[in-house]
Amino acid sequence: MQPAISIKNLSKVYATGFEALKRINLDIDHGEIFALLGPNGAGKTTLISIICGIVTPTDGSVTVDGHDIISDYRAARAMIGLVPQELTTDSFETVWATVSFSRGLFGRPSNPDYIEKVLKSLSLWDKKDDKIMTLSGGMKRRVLIAKALSHEPQILFLDEPTAGVDVELRKAMWNVVRSLRDTGVTIILTTHYIEEAEEMADRVGVISHGEIILVEEKVELMRKLGKKQLALQLHEPLDRIPIALSAYHLELSEDGNELIYTYDTQSERTGITGLLSDLSQAGVKFKDLNTTQSSLEDIFVSLVRSAE
């Protein structure tokens, strides 16, 4: 089976000379949720815009389910729904009219039942006759999603879908995205919120300065780069770390009440058992302990930093 999207050696140099994308190679599989993470100006939106036909690539090729985005643009674009980052809407139109417009534009015969279903799933049904300009920001975002879904796309691009959206609505959108994936739709989302990728994605791609610096299964990524820390709250504060424990590279908190041990989850021996027995031999007693795992955000920050 063809990948849902296959990107080969894709480059983009804008007229200003700015090199937004540098020979990107990436395959996205059918039915997965792929999160594209990256700081501002990394090239996320440029990449999406090229695939959707809004920006012309300088070099390289993209196919959507085997259809080239330029020579076979009709077939390629008909499969794609795009939710742009900016809240760009026809202020004077009603919700119903604008969503129906999108369906027609993508070459689908009108189907009021389907539009009704989409609007209901996004809690927009009671707003269907309202003009878009009367809606709140979160509602407008839903309208954009409804427009993107109006023509029953098999691939959905969400460019920063929850930017500026409150927590409750964000969770509601995650549910919408998950239920879409359950129907077999491939979803590519870009986001600033790492928790969003952590929560939603099957795979994560990290883009920085126009280059994909990493693509990994999310679980694998967390495992590979995930560091764990063991913090021990001591009974009595220490002035310094006992020499007997120097091999563990421990950190002592400023007040001397806490010892922190950082270890790699992927190594076979974490060294915890040895540390604990060496601690009791050294006569260090602790009253409590806890472990923390690094989040995707920590991983992300360290990756982007090392790429720079």
């Binding site: 959707c52 009709r74 674009r77 794609i80 795009l82 742009p84 760009t88 534009l105 993508f106 070459g107």
Partner: peptide, 17 residues
Amino acid sequence: FPKFTGTIYELLSAPVS
């Protein structure tokens, strides 16, 4: 107007010649 408001993105991304 679509260029001004930005809604032109939809026209450009649609399967239309």
